Amino acid sequence: MLKIFRIIVITLCCILICTLGTIYSLINLKNPNNVAIVARWFGRLYPLFGLKVEHRFLETLDTSKPYIYIANHQNNYDMVTISYMVRPRTVSVGKKNLLWIPFFGILYWASGNILLDRDNRSKAHSTMKQLSERINKDEISVWMFPEGTRSRGRGLLPFKTGAFHAAIEAGISIVPVVCSTTHNQVNLNRKNNGKVICEILPPIDIQGYTKENVRDLAEHCRNIMQQHIAKLDAEIAQEKLE
């Protein structure tokens, strides 16, 4: 019964956010602050899933500068956990077929996100170049999931290099954003589904990296994120014991 109630309330809330977010974004069409505003609306829904989410922001991060934010992509619950971490003047890069998702698709476009045709590799490479040019021209940051797909309990998947090519091309630092493991954590019939920690890590300088060794940069970032996710998981496990 609790699960049915939650599904109804969550669905209504998501439709409401998508509707209001679309109206707001159409009024402020493609404004780079739209994404962070709407992402935070979704990020406020976590109590409906029986979750307690702790958001750890990096106070020393200069958000007036553009960055490439890279985050781990676990499952659909990312919408109410790590989405809250999106900073102002940050847009995301997503698959072109997101446009066809009812309610969400038009919101994703209107809020100023970038749609990428991942089935066309040559076009995707061109998009990364255009992306770096837009970063410097409009002084925006970009949020990307370098795994390219949801991990669904398989751990941190190998990283694709698009985000790192864009960072090198634009000459900007990479900021990792991590979320503790949520695989199999949420049971909508259970009142309390535990704690999740989301954290922004210090920027990673891309100096010394070029397109020739971009995979080394990707692996370096992945190792940092993997180690910190394990640290967050251990912290949550220890809290449960206490």
Rank of each mutant, 00 (worst) to 15 (best):
N34P: 00
E199S: 06
P32I: 10
V53R: 03
I172L: 12
K191A: 10
R121V: 11
C18S: 14
V178F: 12
A167T: 12
R215S: 03
S122W: 04
N113P: 00
G153Y: 11
F5V: 15
R6V: 05
R89D: 12
S83W: 07
F104E: 04
V93L: 14
M225K: 01
R152Q: 11
D78G: 08
N33R: 12
S126T: 13
I27N: 03
E235S: 05
T60E: 12
V214P: 00
K96G: 03
I70A: 08
F57R: 05
S173H: 10
Y108V: 06
M225A: 06
A230K: 12
Q74H: 10
R121K: 07
C13W: 12
Y67S: 00
K211W: 08
Y209A: 10
S132L: 02
P102V: 07
T127R: 00
L45A: 05
I37F: 15
I70C: 09
Y46I: 00
Q238I: 00
P32F: 13
A167Y: 11
I140G: 10
L98A: 03
L29Q: 04
Q226A: 06
A237Y: 05
I174T: 05
Y84C: 03
F42V: 04
V177I: 14
P47I: 07
I82L: 02
G50F: 08
Y67D: 00
S126V: 13
P176S: 14
H125D: 00
G208E: 15
R154A: 12
V86S: 01
G155S: 05
